[in-house]
């Protein structure tokens, strides 16, 4: 069953220099209880999508068109008051712990409790404390540390608390925006395991955002690759890794190749993605594309369906032989 269905979503930012189209005509579906990964370089619009799904876009952002169907409602049309019933209760967000996501002057348990009480004001104290214990257990933090202040926690613990906070009201959809960025490799691994474990245990829908394709692949079976505000390729993990069709996906994988097959591929000198302030009207990756043809420069590419789950947004979808995938 489809939990979330995004159709033709475009989001712009009003800036001094004009409208910056950060997300351009994006569509995707998410099945109930499954994870979906978004990957792409910095500035490609990942956070913008995440924030739109939370109704937390900055003041200067405008949703230009499109719809976000979630449990029979179009989130784009919600009023602020309606949003408050959704946020935290049905859709929750896991922020990056390296950000200052926890309020430094309130105790950790208090910050989680608050999320629960807001949506379940009638919960009894006993139930509330059971719920807190269960949450801390779930993310492997000793219950004894519950009453600490955030600065008394390590980076990894903070990230766990943030996960617990997102789970507090048993949401149907969780959005995780770069949850492991800026953690050291070992902690990053633990947190990814944690997220995987929790997601499988409670079967919530998950949108997992990262600039690192390997990180995304370790959590999600389905991946959307983004470039300059558009989704350029989507498919199962296997499809994207073993037979990437979009040249950008290829270069993403290229920049992730291990040393032994580095010779196979020339990591191109990448240029900046095009200026999102202007209308582009042709393939955005053209300047960096090694197989760019005349058609590419003239018209906007279209979707090419490769399998039931796999498609690429490219005029000349590559058949790449000799797979570069690791799995």
């Amino acid at each position: 069953m489809t939990l979330l269905s995004v159709k033709n979503l475009s989001i712009g930012y009003k800036t001094k220099k004009g409208l910056l189209k950060a997300v351009d005509n994006i569509s995707f579906d998410l099945e109930k209880g499954l994870p979906l990964g978004f990957v792409g370089e910095s500035g490609c619009g990942k956070t913008t999508i995440g924030m739109a799904l939370m109704g937390l876009l900055p003041e200067n952002a405008v949703i230009l068109e499109g719809s976000i169907q979630f449990q029979g409602e179009d989130l784009v049309r919600l009023t602020e008051k309606q949003w408050r019933k959704v946020r935290g209760a049905k859709i929750a967000m896991i922020f990056q712990a390296a950000m200052n996501a926890l309020n430094p002057v309130h105790r950790v348990d208090e910050q989680i409790k608050e999320a629960i009480i807001t949506h379940q004001p009638d919960m009894s104290d006993a139930d509330l404390s059971d719920r807190l214990n269960a949450l801390f257990d779930l993310v492997d933090i000793p219950v004894a540390r519950m009453k600490d202040y955030p600065h008394e926690y390590s980076g990894g613990m903070k990230q766990r608390v943030i996960i617990a906070m997102a789970l507090a009201c048993d949401p149907d959809l969780i959005i995780a925006d770069e949850p492991t960025t800026a953690l050291d490799v070992i902690v990053q691994d633990q947190i990814l395991k944690e997220i995987r474990k929790v997601q499988q245990k409670i079967r919530t829908g998950l949108i997992f955002i990262s600039h690192d394709i390997a990180v995304v692949a370790s959590v999600c079976d389905r991946i959307c690759v983004m470039y300059a505000g558009q989704i350029v390729e989507t498919g199962t993990k296997k499809e994207v890794f073993t037979s990437p069709r979009h040249p950008y996906t290829l270069s993403l994988l290229g920049s992730y190749l291990s040393l032994d097959n580095l010779d196979d591929i020339v990591i191109p000198d990448m240029q900046e993605p095009p200026d999102l302030l202007s209308d582009i009207g042709s393939c955005r990756f053209a300047d960096n594309c090694r197989v760019c043809s005349e058609t590419c420069k003239k018209e906007e590419p279209g979707w090419v369906q490769i399998s039931a789950t796999h498609k690429a947004f490219c005029c000349e979808p590559q058949i790449i032989r000799g797979s570069h995938g690791k799995n």
Binding site: M54, L56, W83, R84, K85, V86, R87, G88, A89, A92, M93, F95, N100, A101, L102, N103, P104, E114, A115, T118, H119, I162, M165, A168
Partner: peptide
């Protein structure tokens, strides 16, 4: 943490 607070639906 203000965004976090918003995200909780406060």
């Amino acid at each position: 943490y203000i965004i976090t607070a918003r995200a909780k639906g406060l």
